[in-house]
Simulated scan of single mutants.
Amino acid sequence: MTTQEVADKLVSICRSGDWTKAQKELYAENAVSIEPEATPAFDKETKGLAAIIEKGKKFDSMVQTMHSIAMSAPIVAPNSFACILDMDVTMKEGGRMNMKELCVYQVKDGKIVQEQFYM
């Protein structure tokens, strides 16, 4: 897949909130996920597809209600792309909040090898 095809497919799947499907279909086995900073819930860096999938499941388990989810169209370069993810969620601890972040992805050989989030 081209970077554009990966980007379009990721956006389509993520708009439904199915992180696991996107990760299984589009991520490399050695992919890396980078958060803005370490938190009690998540390390700054998560390495490997299995660990990234578990991270997504952990996030889902922390959500009480997903009120809405939106993802912008991707801005695509030859080996990377970026989108804005906007979620209105009620967390089990912490209440309702709007989570808006810039998501930047690097692609190699038709697979996502790195994701990095900026708030």
Rank of each mutant, 00 (worst) to 15 (best):
Thr3Trp: 02
Thr3His: 02
Thr3Tyr: 07
Ala7Thr: 10
Ala7Asp: 02
Lys9His: 01
Leu10Tyr: 07
Cys14Gln: 13
Ser16Asn: 14
Thr20Asp: 08
Lys21Ala: 12
Tyr27Ser: 04
Glu29Asp: 15
Glu29Phe: 01
Asn30Asp: 13
Asn30Gln: 11
Ala31Met: 09
Glu35Thr: 01
Glu37Phe: 11
Ala38Phe: 00
Thr39Lys: 00
Pro40Asp: 04
Ala41Leu: 03
Ala41Ile: 02
Phe42Ser: 00
Phe42Ile: 01
Thr46Trp: 01
Lys47Ile: 08
Leu49His: 06
Leu49Lys: 15
Leu49Val: 05
Ala50Asp: 14
Ala51Gln: 11
Ala51Glu: 11
Ile52Met: 04
Asp60Cys: 13
Asp60Trp: 04
Ser61Arg: 10
Met62Glu: 13
Met62Asp: 02
Val63Pro: 01
Thr65Asn: 14
His67Lys: 15
His67Leu: 14
Ala70Asp: 15
Ser72Gly: 10
Ala77Pro: 03
Pro78Asn: 14
Ser80Met: 12
Ala82Lys: 11
Cys83Trp: 03
Ile84Gln: 06
Ile84Lys: 07
Leu85Arg: 07
Asp88Ala: 09
Val89Met: 12
Val89Cys: 15
Val89Asn: 06
Thr90Glu: 15
Glu93Pro: 00
Glu93Asn: 05
Arg96Ile: 12
Met99Val: 12
Glu101Thr: 12
Glu101Pro: 06
Val104Phe: 06
Val107Ile: 07
Val107Tyr: 02
Lys108Leu: 10
Lys108Tyr: 08
Lys108Asp: 03
Lys111Pro: 07
Val113Asp: 00
Val113Cys: 09
Tyr118Leu: 13
Tyr118Lys: 04
